[in-house]
Write a protein that binds this DNA or RNA. Structure first.
Lengths: 334, 334
DNA sequence: CTGAAAGCGCTTACAG
DNA sequence: CTGAAAGCGCTTACAG
């Protein structure tokens, strides 16, 4: 049960591959193929169960109709949802998605980029790791369509889709201050990415706007490695400060999950003593009995914009360098 | 900045493409290429930044080093984790993953299968939808390596990796009965898949083993379309039965999430009146104040076994038809 | 209106 | 030890 090729059809019909190719690509009219011929070809193709090979086409045209997606970890619900949104949007353009997880490791990240390029993807959607900047620059020089999502680098020109981290973070913290919480612990994700910098800046900005002095000791940095344990340590330290804190602000959903989990296990009484808020969320947060406030990103919009920017690059000769910043919503669970 | 090809290197060096190809594929020794020649080629390749094109290779050899993954919905945490596990395992063999979501729709599912085959994937890992059976049979006939994960079809021979749905479900329900819960409502996922049938059978078996008559009215079927509303309806009906129920058992994590959410909103007093259990879980379940019992699948093992079965097929002429059934664990949150 | 031919980047049987 | 040539499945400029 071999696959049938263009050549098989053309042989069967006694016509040229050219003719068959034209018909199969809907160029029959443009190339002024007779209607009878066109129908004969179409019929035979259907009869033989002809399916064009993307490989042959890709090799010849340089287009694979596949885009590469590199995320930190596809099993994280944020990236999984992003992947879904990108999948659906790409499909509208006839594109599929090949993916890889970098684990915030620049070495893995750049390896995946190379690999996907060798597999001739038409474009790359990347949630870059710290240290990827020079590599992204290489993509720019090679004119490989690419867009950075969720985080980016300020020192290189490229296409970017991010949420407004500074503004979102500012509003979340401001909200805490309005509620009377002055001493707000911040559990930061220490991976050297712009999105995290923006969130920290928003935290500081909100404090400043309310005349509260920034206290370095209230900021705890958690690395990607050993995130579970480190988050627990960070929260424990914050809960045990000599001068008690009023609230804890987590820099992302994963930290918030781990932090809330730790608080529950550590001391169920204490949990009601501090307010909790976070940037980004898990669906499940709405089920918790812990009151909290969090920012919500429109992941669908992130994906849509990313695909849009990729397609724009694929279909244009000129380089575009566009930074799109999306707003976030604040949600409160009482 | 064009990509360099084999031909570029061979021209530069004044040798044949054959020679370069042999060297690049590590066949220098086997083909008895001189050490000097080998080194010269390797050096020049590095110098020119040569990267082999998977496309050319794939077209010639028929191997793309890519596997296709079809899940119901990549944004669902179960499938996202499965994807991650498959990604990591496949990478060990030098394979990447291209994915698609079927939304439990056989039409989409089979379209994706066709598309991925046209893109020359070396194998397909499929979480099939109801109605995919004939298509899977076609794959079998075409000898396209494939493995069904999570669900399968009893009437066709193929490679399958699933958890022990019947036994797991039996143990979950049995546990409820031991706790004194006799009237157990069951919220079933009505998509006509073997995994769901197994879970229902386990439910019935546990009742039977304890001498409890099966009561059709305690089983509520929820379809994939409008799952949120329908789950709410199902739970509402169960909570309002003339003869009160003791527990509600959800057939999967998504239903459990929606059900628990509904119960919270609907009547926070009632929630403590019925026990809750489910097959499969979300990480977040451990944070809920609702006591519940759930089964845990080793998603990593599902992925590892799926990739293993794909690789076995890719590397063998003979057809293998293996069904692997993995155990599940039961976890209790008080 | 239609076809022969080149070429995308590889591999491999064959020949020397 | 090394090379010329065919072919995987397509598209497209060129010729008629």
């Amino acid at each position: 049960m071999k696959k049938v090729s263009l050549a098989d059809i053309s042989k069967e019909l006694g016509v040229s591959k050219t003719l068959v190719s034209f018909v199969m690509n809907g160029k029959a009219e443009e190339k002024r193929i007779s209607t009878e011929m066109t129908e004969k070809v179409l019929l035979k193709a259907k009869e033989m169960g002809y399916k064009p090979s993307y490989l042959g086409k890709a090799l010849r045209t340089g287009k694979s109709n596949t885009i590469g997606l590199i995320v930190a970890d596809i099993s994280n619900s944020f990236f999984a949802k992003l992947a879904r949104s990108i999948e659906d949007e790409a499909m509208k353009y006839g594109y599929n998605v090949i993916f890889g997880s970098s684990d915030e490791d620049s070495h893995k990240s750049t390896q995946l980029i190379d690999l996907f390029i060798d597999k001739n993807v038409d474009g790359l959607i990347i949630c870059p790791s710290k240290g990827d900047a020079k590599y992204i620059e290489k993509l720019q020089n090679m004119k490989t369509p690419n867009v950075l999502v969720d985080r980016y680098f300020t020192d290189i020109d490229c296409n970017v889709v991010v949420v407004d981290n500074l503004e979102g973070s500012f509003r979340i913290v401001k909200d805490q201050i309005i509620k009377g919480n002055k001493r707000i612990g911040y559990v930061n994700f220490n991976v050297g990415l712009t999105n995290m910098e923006g969130r920290l800046a928003g935290y500081k900005k909100a404090l400043k706007a309310s005349g509260i002095a920034f206290d370095e000791s209230l900021v705890k940095n958690v690395p990607f490695k050993g995130i579970e344990e480190e988050t627990a340590n960070a929260v424990r330290e914050l809960l045990n400060m000599d001068k008690p804190i009023d609230a804890i602000y987590f820099a992302n959903n994963h930290l918030a999950f781990l932090g809330v989990k730790f608080i529950k296990e550590y001391n169920s009484n204490k949990k009601s003593l501090v307010s909790i808020c976070s940037f980004d969320s898990f669906e499940f947060m709405s089920l918790l009995d812990t009151p909290l406030v969090y920012g919500v990103q429109s992941i669908d919009k992130l994906g849509e914009n990313a695909v849009d920017l990729i397609m724009k690059q694929i279909n244009s000769v000129a380089q575009i360098n566009e930074i799109r910043v999306l707003p976030i919503d604040i949600v409160e669970i009482k």
